[in-house]
Amino acid sequence: MKKWVKILLYSLLGIVLIIGSAAGYFYFKFKRDYNSTDKPYKNYIGYIGQEKALLNDVYTLCDGGNIYHTYSSASLKAYAGTKKQFRTALTENYSGDKFNDSGYLNFRFLVNCDGNAGWFEIIQMNLDLEETKLNPQMVDSLFTFTAMPQNWKELDFHEKSSNYYMYVSYRIENGKVVEIVP
């Protein structure tokens, strides 16, 4: 065989091996790494299971259900006004006088592209951060307030109104909300 044919064949073999190795690497990296079947945390940050979510059938998610602002939630940008206005509205809509529970009441939820809150997950804890059950009427009252659409605004992601993840945590002492996070 001529020398140039051998060089050409070895070059082609080298190129095929390089392409095959790159394809195998990318297959492993993107197919296997994102397979969450045998991993302890099977969902993305901000995931709220639809089978347990409250108000998951009232509104629809836009943009094929894509959720944005998942790592730190929409934070202070999501309040329809300011956080101070949110607290004032809470004071007008919620009176803790009839409750004596203390703890944290955490709402994790999604807000769709129209500013409607839904898909709620509620976590109730005592002041030592241990899961507990708080007074159901108090939880329902704060849930009703938190779910009100006038509390949330539409947020853009890449100049397009989008769905986003949000959370609100109320610190409650003797039935009174003493702190709201974020």
Rank of each mutant, 00 (worst) to 15 (best):
S169L: 13
Y25T: 08
Y25M: 11
K3V: 06
G96F: 06
L61P: 01
Q150T: 14
E130I: 07
F120L: 02
T82G: 11
A23W: 05
R87T: 11
Y44S: 02
N66I: 03
N56F: 11
C62W: 02
L105K: 00
E159C: 06
S36M: 13
D33S: 09
I18K: 09
F157E: 04
Y104S: 02
F145N: 02
L90D: 05
V177G: 03
F86S: 03
N116H: 11
A89V: 03
A22H: 13
F157I: 03
D97A: 06
H69L: 13
G24M: 12
Y44F: 10
M166G: 03
K3P: 05
A117I: 02
Y79G: 03
I172P: 02
G65M: 03
E121N: 15
L110T: 00
G20R: 04
L17H: 08
I67Q: 00
G64H: 07
G46P: 02
E131F: 12
K31E: 09
I123E: 09
Q137V: 07
A147S: 09
D114S: 15
S162G: 12
Y44E: 01
I15S: 15
G118M: 04
Y10K: 11
F28K: 14
Y94K: 06
Y71G: 04
E179D: 04
V111K: 00
L110M: 05
E159N: 08
L8Y: 14
Y164P: 02
I67Y: 01
G14E: 09
